[in-house]
Design a binder for these strands. Structure first.
Lengths: 207, 207
DNA sequence: AACAAATAAAGAAAAAAATCACGATTTAAA
DNA sequence: TTTAAATCGTGATTTTTTTCTTTATTTGTT
C-alpha cells in the first residue's frame, strides 16, 4: 500500500480522482493543473506538486492524461488492494454506508452488518446480510475480517467496541460515533468526527 | 466565530471536548495533558499548546479544570452561535444526520429535510419535517437558512446543487456526496469525503 | 522542612506543507 | 517563422505544525 503519502495529500488525491473520473465519463483526455486547482479552490502549483508524487509527467501547454493520472492515483492510494470490513450498527448510518457502492471501487469491501435488534436480523441490504452482533467474533475469525466500521449510537459505542475487539481478528475500528474510544494499543481507531468536520467548515468559511 | 484556529487544532479540540464531556459525566474535576495525550495517542506538549490557544491556564501537578476547559472549547469553536441548516436528500444518510442529536449542542440546528420522493414528504424525523425539494428556495428565504447539507445520491448531486443555490440564501454546502461540485465562487463547499477518510485510515494504519 | 515526582509553560528547533517565482517547453496564432 | 500565451517542473521561501528541551510550580512524602 501507499508508503508515505501525507494525510492532506491523500485527501486531495481522492478529490482529483473524482474529478478525473468525471472527465473520463465525458470523454475528455487531458486536464491541466490550473483547471483542477480552480475547481477545488487551491493553488495550481500545489496540484503539480501532488502529481509529482505519482511519477506521472505532464506536458506543457496541454496538461496531464486523464486516464494515466487516474490509474496512478488508484495505484498510489491502493484502491486495488481490497480490504474486507463489517459494519457494526444497522441504523440509518450503517445502512447508508452499506449502500454506498463507491466503497467497493476504492478497495473497501463490506461483507456484512451487525446489530442487536432482532427485527433487523437476516434482512439483506445491498446484498449484505444483517447478523446478530453475537455472531461477529465467529464470523470475523472465519472470514478473516480485520476492520469494523462502528455506527452504533454514542452511548453504546464503548461497550460495543469492547465486545468486538474480543475477537482477536478485529484490529481496526473506523469510528463514526462521537465517542472517543478507549482501546488497547494494538487496536487502531480512526475517528470520523463529523462535529470536527462541521466546526472546520464553520470556522473556515463563515465570516 | 473563531478567528484563526487551524484545521488540525480545531479537529483536536473537538476530540478533547468529547473526552471532557465524558469526565464531566463521571464527576471528575480535573484532567492533565498526559492523560488526554495518551488517550488520543498524541504528544502531551501538543495538548498544552492547543490549550494555550484557549487562554485557560492549568495548574502544575494537577492539570486543567474539566468544566472550565470544556466551556472554553465551546466558546472558541463557536458552539453557542447557532447556525440553521437544511438536509437535502432524505435517504439513509440524510435521516442519520437528522437524528444525530449531537449537532444541536455543537451549534448546528437542522430545521428540515428535503427530498423529491412523494412517499417521504410530510414525514417527521426527529421533529423535523420532510418537504418536497421544490419548497426549498421559498423556505430558505423565509427562514433565512444559508447552509444546505447535501446527502443525495452521487448522480444527482450536481443538479440538486445547481437547484438549491438558485435560492440566493443558500451560501454553504456541506457535501456528503462523492461528487466534486461545480459552483460559483460565492458558494462555499465543504466536502465530507468518506473515501478520502478511508484512504487516510488505510494508508496510515495498515502495515 | 527538604526532597522527589508530576506537570504546566514557554521558547527553540525541526519537520511538514503551502506558496511563490521563474525558467523551460509547447501550442496556437499572427 | 516569430511571437505570445499557457502550462509544466522545480528550487526557494514562507508559513504552519509538531516535537523537543528547559525551567518553574505544585503536591505528596519522608
Amino acid at each position: 500500500m501507499s508508503k508515505n503519502i501525507p494525510e492532506k495529500v491523500s485527501n486531495r488525491l481522492t478529490l482529483y480522482h473524482s474529478i478525473l473520473a468525471e472527465y473520463m465519463e465525458e470523454g475528455i483526455e487531458s486536464i491541466s493543473s490550473p483547471q483542477i486547482a480552480q475547481r477545488l479552490g487551491i493553488d495550481d502549483s500545489q496540484v503539480r506538486k501532488d502529481f509529482k508524487l505519482l511519477n506521472n509527467a505532464g506536458k506543457c501547454r496541454v496538461g496531464y492524461l486523464v486516464s494515466e493520472l487516474k490509474d496512478s492515483i488508484e495505484k498510489t492510494l491502493g484502491f486495488a488492494t481490497v480490504k474486507d470490513a463489517f459494519i457494526v450498527g444497522a441504523g440509518h448510518l450503517g445502512l447508508a454506508l452499506a449502500k454506498y457502492d463507491n466503497f467497493n471501487s476504492y478497495g473497501l469491501n463490506i461483507l456484512a452488518l451487525f446489530d442487536n435488534d432482532p427485527h433487523k436480523i437476516d434482512i439483506q441490504v445491498n446484498n449484505k446480510q444483517i447478523f446478530h452482533i453475537s455472531k461477529l467474533p465467529n464470523l470475523a475469525e472465519r472470514l478473516n475480517v480485520e476492520i469494523a466500521i462502528l455506527t452504533v449510537p454514542r452511548q453504546f459505542a464503548q461497550q460495543v467496541a469492547d465486545y468486538i475487539i474480543q475477537s482477536s481478528k478485529i484490529k481496526y475500528i473506523w469510528n463514526f460515533t462521537p465517542a472517543v474510544l478507549k482501546v488497547p494499543p494494538h487496536i487502531k481507531v480512526w475517528n470520523e468526527n463529523l462535529i470536527a468536520s462541521f466546526v472546520q467548515f464553520a470556522c473556515k468559511d463563515f465570516e
